[in-house]
Design a protein around this nucleic acid. Structure first.
Lengths: 150, 150
DNA sequence: GTTTGTGCAAATGCTTTGCAATTTG
DNA sequence: CAAATTGCAAAGCATTTGCACAAAC
């Protein structure tokens, strides 16, 4: 299992960041990071809060919100708004760059990766003379019902 | 000037939709549509509300929210969430498919269009066996300071 | 011991809802 | 005139803020 070691690497990333920024290494910050990395979902704050309560870990929502900003800033977490006014968070380290397909009827979220997005990015950087450090691409779709039958 | 005639075409689109859906043709719905099409910005509800008040047109925010759903459903308006928890709206008819670059330092929004996004879309539809009817692509960037000097 | 971070509760801000009054067809 | 739509105010959520207490360094 690589679970333990990879979680440790992520925690070390956080430590490096906290030291560099002269922020404090509080147990809450590590616990929240761990909770996110133990999940494969796109978590909103309430779900995260509930999950931690279930584990008998007490954190306030204020701390959750504060910590998310930190984790986003050090690139360990990515933030999403799929269009329903619920902000969701997802681990990003060891998880690769990817984008999302939102199935509008069920709310399911699929993930994909396409190298052409990188090419578009480079073109845009050249044309507009900007430096792009983030992107988000969402496809809103529904499953095809038609199968090969006819 | 094509302003008047194109606005009329958009209004006719709304009329067709309202009739088809058996919704009522209220003056508020046309006034809101007009206000959005008179603007080139990405408007949030409060700004839209203020703009209409300035023109001495009284609408409630409830009606604004309701009407936005209608205008989105008939593809006359597109909805955006650039990541700051403010929902913005933009005209979409006569305005072409395009995506956005958000300059994170100034909040400025640039627009672009790249055909490769369509190619990615088709690939995804094939691979995942889905039908994509919407997408949103945002690049988060900042302006390059380096010029050709030196 | 200072200063930063946390928790709590109150405040804020965007959006939705309930209902009476109005308007559309 | 029946049903849909509007406006208003209240209610609902997600998020932020202020401040006393606790914890990190």
């Amino acid at each position: 299992m690589t679970c333990f070691s990879s979680l440790n690497i992520v925690k070390e990333e956080l430590t490096k960041y906290l030291i560099e920024k002269k922020y404090r290494k509080t147990p809450e910050r590590y616990a929240i990071l761990e909770e996110i990395y133990n999940s494969n979902e796109h978590l909103d704050i309430d779900t995260l809060f509930a999950k931690m309560q279930d584990r008998n870990y007490r954190v306030s929502k204020a701390t959750l919100y504060n910590t998310m900003e930190i984790l986003i800033d050090c690139n360990l977490v990515r933030k999403h708004q799929f269009g329903d006014n619920i902000t969701r968070f997802e681990k990003s380290f060891f998880h690769g760059k990817h984008d999302h397909i939102i199935l509008t009827d069920t709310g399911e979220v699929l993930e994909f990766s396409d190298p052409r997005i990188q090419e578009i990015k480079e073109t845009i950087e050249d044309i507009f003379n900007v430096k792009i450090d983030e992107h988000s691409l969402y496809f809103y779709a529904f499953r095809n019902t038609k199968t090969i039958e006819n």
